[in-house]
């Protein structure tokens, strides 16, 4: 059962393999019909599997090596991208990309976590786990956007801020805190998209937006399911339970009013079709931007304040 939950794509792979085997050998109309039949079954099965993902399976989907990353979205959605490097204090952090671009004729700023596709790139990007320099670069670009009054788009996809020695020495906590405070007070329109892993403070640091969108299979949480399991259950193996208990999926977050909208993914997830995913996201981004542009900057920043001000559930009564 546990293995089945982990490897939910196996039936899909098996079908794909059979189709491939059949296509490899010559045959008549029968064979073509058979392939077509299997192909239809594969589509249906994929839809079926992805429609019933458990929270833990979603956590696995968003770590899929073929998920589109920030630079993929930048290429598919924006033009004239100019990447900006460095925090002008210490270094450039490749785990966060930032820059200027054009979106449907409007100059905009973009900030996002960036993971690597192959091993070398993964290491260079530190698996999408930023160091303080990354957040300081992000803040620099946010302030640039603020100065010239350009909208800001951010893309969130990180396991979390890097828990390393140097990161601590250089003020990981301070860098995140400043990013949170800065973002909350920008007067420009901010549209955030959680595209994959929304890992804790390292994700939130660039996710304080007027509109927060989340991809259908993305997750967003205070700690990774493994981390939560290790601390509360003293057993990393309880990650599935932790994933369920923490309510980390897009529908959960919509219900808790943490995100504004769920962006649907194509069958088989965003990793199956980057172009299609970008097109779906495009509509959502455009709608959000249009909406935000019709509001005065002062009202926008106050509305953003109230949006986050409302988050959280507590009771009020006297006990003592």
């Amino acid at each position: 059962m546990a293995a089945e939950e982990d490897d939910f794509e196996r039936p899909l792979r098996e079908l794909e393999k059979r189709i491939e085997e059949l296509s490899g050998v010559p045959g008549g109309d029968d064979r073509a019909d058979e392939i077509e039949r299997l192909d239809r079954r594969l589509q249906a099965l994929r839809q079926e599997v992805y429609a019933h993902l458990t929270p833990w399976q979603r956590a696995l989907v968003e770590r899929h090596p073929k998920r589109p990353y920030t630079l993929d979205y930048v290429n598919l959605l924006f033009s004239d991208f100019v990447e900006i490097h460095g925090d002008r204090k210490y270094a450039d952090d490749p785990a966060i990309v930032a820059g200027l671009a054009t979106y449907k004729g409007t100059p905009i700023a973009v900030v996002g976590h960036q993971k690597g596709r192959d091993t070398r790139e993964k290491v260079r990007r530190n698996f999408g786990m930023p160091r303080p320099e990354g957040y300081r670069k992000a803040v620099r670009v946010m302030e640039l956007a603020e100065k010239f009054q350009r909208p800001l788009f951010t893309f969130v996809d990180t396991p979390g801020a890097y828990p390393g020695k140097g990161a601590e020495e250089r003020g990981q906590a301070e860098a995140i805190a400043v990013s949170l405070r800065t973002m909350a007070r920008l007067t420009i329109p901010i549209v955030v998209t959680v595209t994959g892993e929304g890992g804790s403070g390292g994700a939130l640091a660039i996710a304080v937006g007027d509109r927060v969108l989340m991809l259908e299979h993305a997750v967003y949480s205070v700690i990774s399911p493994e981390g939560c399991a290790a601390i509360l259950w003293s057993d990393q193996g309880k990650a599935k339970e932790a994933a369920r208990a923490m309510r980390i999926t897009a529908p959960d977050l919509r219900e808790l009013e943490i995100i504004d909208a769920i962006v649907p993914e194509p069958p088989g997830g965003a990793q199956a079709d980057h172009t299609r995913q970008a097109a779906i996201l495009d509509d959502h981004l455009m709608a959000a931007l249009e909406e935000l542009r019709s509001v005065l900057p002062v009202e926008r920043v106050e509305a953003r304040y109230q949006k986050f001000r409302r988050m959280g559930t507590f009771g009020q009564a006297k006990f003592f």
Partner: peptide, 14 residues
């Protein structure tokens, strides 16, 4: 409190 706790960071920083 899952992600609700996380959001307190944004609320307070704002």
């Amino acid at each position: 409190e899952g992600v609700l706790s996380l959001m307190q960071m944004a609320k307070i920083s704002a």
